[in-house]
Nucleic acid binder design. Structure first.
Length: 798
RNA sequence: GGGAGUUUAGCUCAGUUGGUAGAGUACCUGCCUUACAAGCAGAGGGUCAUAGGUUCGAGUCCUAUAACUCCCACCA
């Protein structure tokens, strides 16, 4: 019935079949309970790596499980295509710089690139058997999503959660864009502590100050010492002279000046770091800008104007040396906040920007986060840890091109902010004008040219999926969504912002459950990274060389939330399992040709395997309800190998030889084989959708009358089995195992005939299945006696 | 410095409510058994990180400690 299995032919065949037959479709009109998944829209940045395959497969297991447990599953799939990653990709692919082109030209390039990659991504995910409903897909740059993103923004403005303000923002001089706190990454960078002379005004003495950023001397506004620092008490209130620039700054005191650090005296520049910002605000210090948006020195820096930060630092140090102002240098490694995308140390710049308030509502975000079930549970502390530490509002303006426009204008006369009308969305303020005149009567407006941070849009994926503002009934039905699956790196961005937005928009949770998957590591302590190209296998290689099913098996093996090190070895078990499933099915089905399933009087060992199956399924379901997909699989797998190695070995004699054991003994085995294999395959279908479909379509489809195995339901086998059957049957396996051990220890073939088997101390149950024991052990005669549990074997030729 | 995770067989990991230490893999031994040698059967292999405590009984609960990992903070 089944022949050879060739995954290279079979897998794409069924993938096509599923798409054509809408096997994974969400049914809007169904009365079934909805299970909805807020799939992470992958960033279009060129490559999908095996980490994606790993975590998307894990989410897919849940989708398939829920579908087969009778839920109406909404499994949408989006692409996050706007934003910096795409721009960088396009700049690289076309060899252009965004700012050298017109906005339209550049956007068109982006659109083309995005389209190309999204097609590739989609094909790859389909190839992995991801059962998303592609009719419910979206991309963040589409008109529809732009509209929702802008609607979200306007809603926040109206509710007072988004505001326009001139505030210090975190600035990346490399990307020339403002970034959010969540986009910072702390990096250990080698630097030099430079001990510099600040002469005391009107004196030959100097104050020694240690700094890693001498290039900011021109932006120095004062010097701080600790109020308790006796060394400098005499200088407080005096003035010191900034070296090279020869202007005076006051010496002030503040607790934040650390006596232990450096020399205990610190220069405050606007802005070298967050502490400078703190001091500037606390003491209302003047603001001096020494660094331009592009990371070059401004005219304030005098002769260093135009130099890049690093170069300016070198030259200033050289000049300090030359003028005998440098006392000493000390090599250090210190943590520096950098832009996670490019690794450039951040700067602080005062900019007029749009912000979404976060700091004021931290408590509510924590409370809402706590209401969500986090799997594994400890991942909640990642979230709460982050929220606790948030100390700035979310800057959402980006001085970039390919993104959702901020739908506002500013009156050129009175400066009033004009918001776009919701009915006009999506709006591009650069190409359209407000529909009415300004209150001051002016009709001249300055359009906002910034676009949104990409997270401003990605943080409303539940709203996008639930048709917010488009279908109220659907929105009420879907929100909060059932599940958010994502890896642990984006808890602080995607999870956090999404929780915040849902609270602001609808005072609700975005989802009930979060399932956090681990990372695939290239090596211990080494993340897979594109730049290092340390990933030994690409997703394409895995899918084409190992098969999608085997790759998915690999994805099922890790513990939820824990990182795993990639190892090709781990694919061996999957390959063995797939092969075994095929062979076992082939064998079992060879006895089921022309079989018509009918309830028969079952023999005990057939009841046993059914009872074992039902028991295993309970554990399986328990694990799945906790999103423990790996443990669920282990449970199923263990049962399956037991089914093969014990049950089939027992049953096959009755299947082969009805003339000896009787027709009804065969029918009993047939029934058990039929139901157990069928139900087992359904469970395997969650993980191994292709091979199980192949077997199902070859045989079981005509009994189930359902077009795909993936549309069937997982359920217990409805056969009543006696209470004691499991332990009784296990005892039989124990006896069989002892027989095998005897033969193995005596270097005998397992088919060697046993003249006399004496079974001692086992329950009476074994007598009832004597024929099975005889058959599987090739035993001529069995005797029973009382005593401690044991067996004795007599061979003829011994 | 704050938060979290991990530590069980050579390796990768299970171990539910406390009750005689488990699987897979590797190694070793045997078996061509009328599905599968990508198979089957079997053997050896563990002071459950350490030290205390609770308990009749602790891998499991409590307290400390150590090592490794991750997140956050640390830019003078």
């Amino acid at each position: 019935m089944l022949d050879k299995y060739n995954f290279r032919e079979s897998e794409p065949k069924w993938e096509k079949f599923w798409q054509e037959n809408n096997v994974n479709s969400f049914d809007k009109n169904s009365k079934k309970e909805i299970f909805s998944i807020d799939t992470p829209p992958p960033t279009v940045s060129g490559k999908i790596h095996i980490g994606h395959i790993f975590s998307y497969s894990q989410a897919d297991f849940v989708a398939r499980y829920k579908r087969m447990r009778g839920y109406n599953v909404l499994y949408p799939f989006g692409f996050d295509d706007n934003g910096l990653p795409t721009e960088r990709l396009v700049e690289k692919e076309y060899g252009v710089k965004a700012h050298e082109l017109s906005r339209e030209e550049f956007q068109e390039m982006c659109m083309n690139t995005v389209e190309k990659y999204e097609k590739e991504f989609k094909e790859l995910f389909i190839r992995d058997g991801i059962s998303a409903d592609w009719a419910h897909s979206y991309n963040t740059i589409s008109k529809r999503v732009q509209k929702l993103s802008q609607k979200s923004f306007l809603d926040l403005v109206k509710k007072g959660h988004a505001y326009y303000g001139e505030k210090p923002a975190i600035w990346c001089p490399e990307c020339q864009v403002s970034i959010a706190q969540a986009e910072l990454e702390s990096k250990d960078i080698a630097s030099t502590f430079n001990h510099i002379k600040f002469y005391i005004s009107g004196s030959k003495d100097y104050l020694e100050i240690a700094t890693t950023r001498p290039e900011l001397l021109s932006a120095c506004v004062c010097v701080f010492v600790n109020p308790d620092d006796k060394r400098y008490a005499h200088l407080v209130g005096k003035k010191v002279i900034v070296p090279l620039y020869d202007f005076e700054v006051p010496v002030l005191t503040d607790e934040k000046a650390d006596i232990e650090k450096g020399t205990g005296a610190v220069m405050c520049c606007t802005f070298g770091d967050e502490t400078d910002l703190y001091w500037q605000q606390k003491y209302n210090l003047p603001i001096k800008e020494a660094i331009s948006d592009g990371g070059r020195m401004t005219s304030l820096a005098g002769k260093y104007e135009g130099l890049k930060i690093k170069k300016a630092r070198e030259e200033i140090i050289a000049d300090l040396k030359l003028n005998d102002l440098l006392i000493s240098q000390e090599e250090i490694v210190h943590a520096v906040a950098t832009h996670e995308r490019c690794g450039t140390p951040m700067e602080i710049k005062i900019k007029k920007q749009w912000f979404i308030s976060l700091v004021d509502n931290k408590k509510l975000f924590l409370e809402n986060g706590e209401k969500i079930n986090w799997y594994p549970n400890f991942m909640y502390s990642r979230y709460s840890n982050w929220v606790d530490n948030v100390d700035r509002d979310w800057c959402v303006s980006r001085q970039r091109y390919f993104g959702v426009p901020i739908p506002v204008w500013y009156c050129s006369k009175c400066g009033k902010i004009i918001l776009a009308d919701e009915k006009d969305l999506p709006v591009n303020p650069l190409t359209t004008k407000p529909s009415k005149t300004c209150e001051c009567g002016s009709t001249d407006f300055i359009p906002e040219s910034d676009v949104f941070d990409t997270w401003q849009t990605s943080s409303i994926t539940p709203q996008i999926n639930a048709m917010w503002g488009e279908d109220d009934e659907m929105y009420k039905k879907i929100m909060p969504m059932s599940l958010r699956p994502n890896a642990h790196d984006i808890i602080r961005t995607w999870d956090f912002y999404t929780i915040a937005k849902s609270y602001y928009h609808s005072n609700c949770l975005p989802w009930k459950n979060v399932m956090v998957s681990g990372f695939v590591m290239a090596d211990k302590n080494e993340k897979i990274s594109k730049s290092k190209s340390n990933s030994k296998m690409s997703p394409e290689m895995l899918l084409n060389e190992k098969s999608a099913d085997v790759t998915r098996y690999w994805a099922s093996t890790g513990s939820l939330g824990r990182d795993i090190v990639f190892s090709e070895e781990e694919f061996k078990n999957g390959a063995k399992l797939v092969n075994k499933i095929w062979n076992a099915s082939k064998f079992v089905l060879s006895f089921l040709e022309n079989y018509e399933p009918k309830q028969t009087k079952l023999l005990p060992m057939d009841e046993w395997i059914i009872a074992k199956f039902n028991q295993m399924q309970k554990y399986f379901i328990d694990y799945f309800e906790k999103y423990e997909i790996g443990l669920a699989m282990a449970e199923l797998e263990r049962f399956f190998w037991n089914f093969c190695d014990n049950y089939i070995e027992i049953a096959k004699n009755r299947l082969y030889k009805p003339e000896i054991y009787g027709e009804s003994a065969k029918e009993s085995a047939q029934f058990a084989c039929f139901v157990v294999l069928k139900e087992m395959l359904k469970m395997f279908a969650i993980y191994l959708p292709h091979i199980t479909e192949e077997i199902y379509q070859n045989y079981f489809v005509r009994f189930e009358n359902i077009k795909s195995i993936h549309n069937t339901e997982i359920s217990a086998i409805a056969v009543k089995t006696p209470e004691e059957i499991i332990s009784n049957g296990d005892e039989v396996c124990d006896i069989v195992s002892k027989i095998r051990r005897y033969k193995s220890e005596n270097n005998l073939s397992l088919k060697e005939e046993i003249e006399l088997l004496t079974i001692q101390g086992y329950s009476n149950f074994v007598k009832r299945v004597e024929y099975d024991i005889k058959a599987v052990g090739n035993v001529k005669e069995i005797k029973y006696q009382d005593g401690d549990k044991n067996i004795d074997i007599k061979m003829l030729n011994k």
